[in-house]
Design a protein around this nucleic acid. Sequence first.
DNA 1: AGAACATGTCATGTG
DNA 2: AGCACATGACATGTT
Length: 706
Amino acid sequence: MSLNEKETFWVYFYGELSVSRQRQGPLPPCQSGCRCFTLSLFLDLIFYFYTSELCSYSGRCSVRFNLICVSVRDFKDNCGSGCLRANSQGNINCAMMEVELSSAHRSQQDMNLIDILWRQDIDLGAEREVFDLSLRQKEDELRRQRELEEEKRLHLLREQDKALLEQLELDKETGEFMPCLLPSEPELPNTDTTPEGNQNTIFSRVDGDALSFDECMQLLTETFPLVETIELPHPPPAHIMPSPSIGNSRPDMLTSQQSPVAQNPMLSALLAPHKAPTVVPASLDPAAVDVEQAWMELLSLPELQQYLKMQVSDILDQNGYTSTSMPLEVQDPNYSFYLPELPDLVTNIDTTPPVPLINNFKGMVPPDNLNQMTLKAPELNTTYTTDSLCKLFYTDPSNTKPSSPMLSYNSNEAYPQEEVRHKPLEPSEIHLPQFSLTDGHKTATEFPDSDSGLSMDNVSSPKKSHQDDSSMGYSDSDLEEMDSNRSEYREMFSLSLHGEEQQSSPYNTGTVSHLPADSLPYPKSELVEGNGHNQRPFTKDKPRRRSAGCQSRLSRDEQRAKALGIPFAVELIINLPVDDFNELMSKHQLNEGQLVLIRDIRRRGKNKVAAQNCRKRKMESISGLEGELEALCKKKAHLLRESAQRNGSLKELKEQLGSLYLEVFSWLRDEEGKPYSPSDYSLQQTSDGSMFLVPRVKKTLKGEDK
DNA sequence: AGAACATGTCATGTG
DNA sequence: AGCACATGACATGTT
């Protein structure tokens, strides 16, 4: 029996509705429950579940579920299990095809459970009409209609924004766009609550490619349609309390009071000062910009970071918040590490799936659709929002809290850690290629991973660039803790940021780590040809296809050296003979940090080559031993064959000898002319060739015994 | 999901 | 003692 796309059926998740990702482990499973869906809606929900948790996951994943689906007409008729698989493009290609709709495996326990759940829903007011197909179809039509209206409205808003920008005037002195008039901004959050909001509401642009503040705000609005504010142990002050009107509003319907910014006290407090004219780095093309990238840019703005710290510091000071007071830590031991400072802002930023990211999943229901999906099942009779959907599937409170993996790995990458808290980042440090040595004995780790190499990966690893930007000042202990979630974190940000900006920022934090960098894990990279190593490491005949994000360690060392102003190539540092190397070092005036980095580069480079050679030798040794073993096996087989051959020949000779013996023996006659019995006599030959007929001893002994 | 493999790094041993 | 190299062990990423 197969399910009709529109047919309503009940789904009972008995304990397992989980999203798994490669290497990251399963997400918290959905709590068991019974829900009424159409197949398409069920798939939508599955997809939402999938996209909400894996919106930026680029690898393969699957949604596994066990379910019992019950059609209206044929109540408790079907059950089965299946697996939705998504490819790297986010397409779910198997859908329900693997669902086996058979009642053969349904247990009586399942049947009873279905009955109980169904009756519960009846008690809650669910009627059979709820599952009527025609009603469902009407509902779908209404939903589509709302989607169309919503698209039109969004389009209109974008047009308005564009028209607004066209009204800007270019200030020839500053190169900034200044507003020639101050139009109202209905969709701009907090314009009515921020005193300076109406003064300079237009974020100036260097050129057309830059993100305006309005675009940033729009980005905020679009990206964080729904914010689940983390519950704080103490209520935030009134001026940062979220509006009570905040509910499950659709993101696109947010008003200035309902906007994510308004919902997010940290965010609103943070963003308000940014209404002052500020030059935004003009590196993004709004038409083609990835939202993630835009976010990276937005969050990496020095002004934003400063305000972020200032505002958060103020808020925390006012409320007595400390990282140790966060209740989230209780739920997640790692949370104090993830969210020490900016719980609201970054948590909200990271936990809400950006709408465009969800849109990346081609062929699936757009999030707006999801937001508008309605269900008439007893528990699902409200408009579907990200929140409600999450609650639908994550009814376990622990799963909706920051202790969830999603939140965890989202949080860690965006949080300035200890050093940031205690040592505000100075603008002069932001783009300072030559960091100053403030503490001689700490210079070895002036670059957070100058010894470990962690930051080298940070430099060029696109997915870590954000972490670099935001984790400035991570202590090594923090980094150690972060490591356990690093890969997860990486999955969240697939943006590719390249260029000096990203490369330099991690090193310019002026932060000091205190642990031996050895303890710091770091992503591995591969040796790139032409990086200075003439020796190619021994490898099997397999294609070397590591990801671009896992670039050469040395190239990062080179970037490091460049950032530190080391005046010679990394390959030179590594490959130069000791004397020449020392001479080179003495020729140049190098500070402690440079010397440490150079020594690390040389040590790592040498050791890397040594390891490669070692492995090469080991593999060669293994190959040699394997060859030797093969030869010995061949030799053994040959000897065995030879032995068998000779045994055969020997056996043949023995047979011939036996027949000859009998023939000779048969010729012998005693004195009476009778033949000798072979059992009584035997023929023996002496050394001189003489033959004797000898009575068998055995016979004689027996005779004596008698 | 997990095994197999590749690679970088560190700690330690050795000459 | 200090250095360079070798290698086991480990971590991490990829297939």
